[in-house]
Design a protein around this nucleic acid. Structure first.
Length: 506
DNA sequence: ATAGGGTTAG
């Protein structure tokens, strides 16, 4: 692969850049690295710069290699520091970007205008407000406050996880308010629940980019304000798949499956290609409405489109869909067939089994999960405790409840307590205890119909029909309601079927 | 070499 030894300087520039451009995987990277060492270029700073850049930025998932390499460089130049910080900020562990910055300070390397946007990106990703404010101070100290890049990242940081007022002030004080600054501030307000302020800003934006449109539409849709979402959707000059997905997901979320399918139909009509997210929304609509037949067809169609290999998240949602539609065997089959699983895969199957009364199997799979050293999270334990409660396994349930806190440091939430209450209250026939504990829970949160249902069940199991009635009254008073929704089966899904079965053959 | 940003399950 490497035929010619690099000599001279400028004449190699082209040769080298071709070489580095061809370096797109770890294997090649290692070969080139070896070449650099063998030929004594390991103290050549431009070779080292290329090595660092390639492993930290150009190739995905090789940031660890970059860190090991960087550790051996006695005096990295500013470009190398910045590149490492940049690569770490966009990696799954942005903490390392901050750590590199502090090392840099300790070693008295002076940061430049490139450094701060990268460090701030890491703080934003980590929602590390205090550190972000410290970095803000550094930006001022080193005199980059009016640098457009530094300033815009600061606006983005404060708007998204810091102080919205500070973000506003930075924005107002900017000499140049470009679309990046507008959109950072607007989307910050939108995502943090200040939708009307966001809307005001959005309306004032001199140039609206598609992402800002999409953020606004998404926020309305997530709030269930589909009318407002729809108005923007109709106005947006250009749509992409995200715009459509936001609308479809919004309709699914509020149970308007018919509109969701109509959106899907229209999307296909105008030639926008549905992607994985679109299908996830539609599968979720199937789960909600128990439309097993449609879900099954989507599953089959996806298998064909992806030639048998579904992504993890698609697999998870399909497991969930089968379980919710009552087809536990299919759910298990999909689960077993998945080559790669993540914690949600386990949660879907354990929860699915538990909620359908397959307690033994749910607990069995939980044990298997632990054997395989996959870390359960709070969702996993809801499934496990539900299984124990259904099976009347009080002792085991208690054990898992303690395991959750002691071994995994997971604070029990209202759903875990709910399971325990259900378990203890109904199994022991201890209506008093169950009622007392659950009413405490209700004080904590009055917005989840599931908890009312639990309480209602406690009463019902004891034949305390007055209690059941009172809970129902409580639910009405606090506005908790179970939306009837429109089934996907009822919706006109011809378009869906057409897409799934006919478009592939075209 | 620079900045921002949307969609999914539990």
């Amino acid at each position: 692969m490497i035929r010619k030894r690099t000599t001279g300087n400028s004449s190699n520039l082209h040769q080298r850049s071709t070489l580095w451009r061809k370096c797109t995987n770890l294997r090649t990277l290692k070969q080139i690295h070896a070449f650099v060492i063998i030929n004594g270029f390991n103290s050549n700073s431009s070779a080292l710069r290329e090595l660092i850049y390639t492993s930290a930025i150009a190739i995905s998932f090789t940031i660890d290699y970059a860190h090991r390499l960087f550790a051996h460089i006695t005096e990295p130049d500013l470009f190398m520091w910045n590149t490492m910080i940049r690569g770490s900020a966009q990696s799954p562990n942005p903490f390392l970007a901050v750590s590199l910055y502090t090392q840099m300070e300790r070693r008295c390397v002076r940061p430049d205008d490139y450094t701060f946007p990268f460090v701030l990106k890491a703080c934003t990703k980590l929602s590390w407000v205090n550190m972000g404010c410290v970095i803000h101070g550094k930006v001022v100290k080193f005199g980059f406050e009016s640098n457009t890049f530094a300033r815009n990242t600061l606006i983005h940081f404060h708007a998204n996880c810091g102080d919205l007022r500070v973000a506003s002030e930075l924005f107002d004080g900017s000499a140049k308010r470009d679309v990046v600054a507008w959109s950072a501030l607007t989307t910050g307000y939108a995502r943090r629940g200040k939708l009307s302020i966001a809307r005001g800003l959005f309306d004032e934006m001199p140039v609206k980019d598609l992402v800002s449109w999409n953020v606004m539409i998404t926020c309305y849709a997530k709030r269930g304000e589909m009318q407002s979402a729809r108005e923007l959707f109709d106005e947006v000059p250009k749509r992409d798949v995200v715009t459509w997905n936001a609308m479809i997901a919004g309709y699914v979320l509020c149970g308007s499956h018919k509109q969701a399918v109509e959106m899907f139909e229209e999307m296909k009509c105008v030639g926008e290609r549905p992607d994985e997210v679109t299908m996830l929304s539609l599968l979720s609509a199937c789960s909600d409405s128990g439309a097993l037949d449609v879900g099954e067809k989507i599953h089959c169609a996806l298998l064909e489109i992806c030639s048998g290999h579904l992504s993890i998240v698609l697999g998870n949602v399909i497991i969930d869909m089968y379980a919710k539609c009552g087809s536990i065997e299919k759910a298990l089959e999909v689960f077993r067939g998945m080559r790669e699983k993540d914690e949600s895969t386990w949660n879907s199957i354990i929860g699915g089994l538990a909620f359908h009364g397959h307690s033994e199997e749910a607990i069995c799979l939980f044990k298997e999960m632990r054997r395989m050293k996959i870390r359960p999270n709070e969702i996993t334990f809801v499934g496990v405790l539900v299984a124990c409660s259904h099976a009347g396994k009080v002792k085991e349930g208690r054990r898992y409840f303690n395991l959750m806190r002691d071994e995994y440091n997971i604070e029990p939430n209202i759903r875990h307590y709910g399971c325990m209450v259900d378990m203890l209250g109904t199994i022991h026939g201890n209506v008093e205890l169950g009622r007392h504990a659950n009413e405490q829970l209700l004080k904590m949160r009055r917005d989840q119909s599931g908890d009312y249902v639990l309480l209602s069940n406690i009463y019902a199991s004891q034949g305390e029909w007055d209690g059941v009635e009172r809970v129902r009254q409580l639910m009405d008073d606090s506005g908790v309601k179970k939306e009837p929704g429109c089934s996907l089966i009822e919706a006109d899904n011809k378009a869906l079927m057409h897409y799934l079965f006919d478009s592939n053959s075209k």
